[in-house]
Design a protein around this nucleic acid. Structure first.
Ligand code: SF4
Ligand code: SF4
Lengths: 137, 137
DNA sequence: ATTAATTTCTACCTTATTGTAGTATATACA
DNA sequence: TGTATATACTACAATAAGGTAGAAATTAAT
């Protein structure tokens, strides 16, 4: 039960960008500071840009920053881009959703857990995560 | 953020076995009833047996049942066999665990979610899941 | 003993995720 | 205009997860 590595990377880089809103940050810089494979990160940044979360500036002195229209991005928006949100509406046993009236024994346990997960990714935003970076990346 | 398919299969089959404690159930039967690939399930059953969760009876009329010494198996024990428990003590950003004194902005959100996850898999057992199978597998 | 039904074991195949390499294109600026 | 520094694009490689095939070994019953 974990996020894909790519999702971890995306959260990592988005938190970092949210803490450096004014600067254009290059892939090379982010790669070194955040310890994410250079080329792989490049593709991920492109994907996040296509999804509208980032603004890009090509060429010399270029790089990425949080898109000006998206100043308060929630975790679910990042996860949606990298691995999708299907798993948050999915049965733990891999069955198509059953009725709440006739649930299997696991249902109530799973639903409650899934609810917590969902609540977190929909309520935590990059705004909540700004200004406190203490960690050595 | 989801369990591996193999973990879903394992939970599925363990819940079913817990609801049929007295019978030896063959892989072929389980495969048909639970809709899990035959050969893949065979290997999974063998793995669960090696891990001590199941008892096996080879040959004609053979099959598997919950191991008599393990009458109350918790979800974490199944997950441990299939995908391990590392992710429940792991940073969401993929960094080695930092100190609680000097956390990054995500830390408190992640820790609380992880705690809920962990509580569920350590507190829900097959005993909790018996006697209520309504679902068509 | 023979047969049928079962697990065990080994090898391989497919798919998705993660990572690498190289070239083309865009921009800043001297 | 030329050069340096950046992203964009395309192709491919490595790894892990999920799945398939078949022969060998085990057991029950005839
Ligand atoms: S009732 Fe059971 S099988 Fe159906 S969606 Fe809920 S957990 Fe899954
Ligand atoms: S402080 Fe941040 S980087 Fe460190 S373990 Fe907690 S969530 Fe991960």
């Amino acid at each position: 039960m974990r996020f894909q590595k790519t999702t971890e990377y995306a959260i990592r880089v988005m938190v970092f960008l949210a803490n450096n809103q004014n600067e254009w940050l290059s892939v090379n810089h982010l790669h070194q500071v955040l310890n994410i494979p250079y080329k792989y990160l490049g593709r991920l940044m492109h994907t996040l840009t296509k999804a509208g979360l980032l603004e890009v500036n090509m060429g010399k002195h270029g790089g990425y920053k949080i898109h000006p229209d998206k100043q308060n991005i929630f975790l679910y928006q990042i996860i949606d881009v990298t691995e999708g949100l299907e798993s948050y509406d999915r049965c733990i046993l891999g069955f198509p959703e059953c009725s709440d009236e006739n649930p299997c024994p696991l249902h109530k346990y799973w639903i409650s857990l899934q609810k917590s997960l969902k609540e977190m990714i929909y309520s935590v935003s990059l705004g909540d995560l700004k200004g406190l970076i203490n960690v050595k990346y």
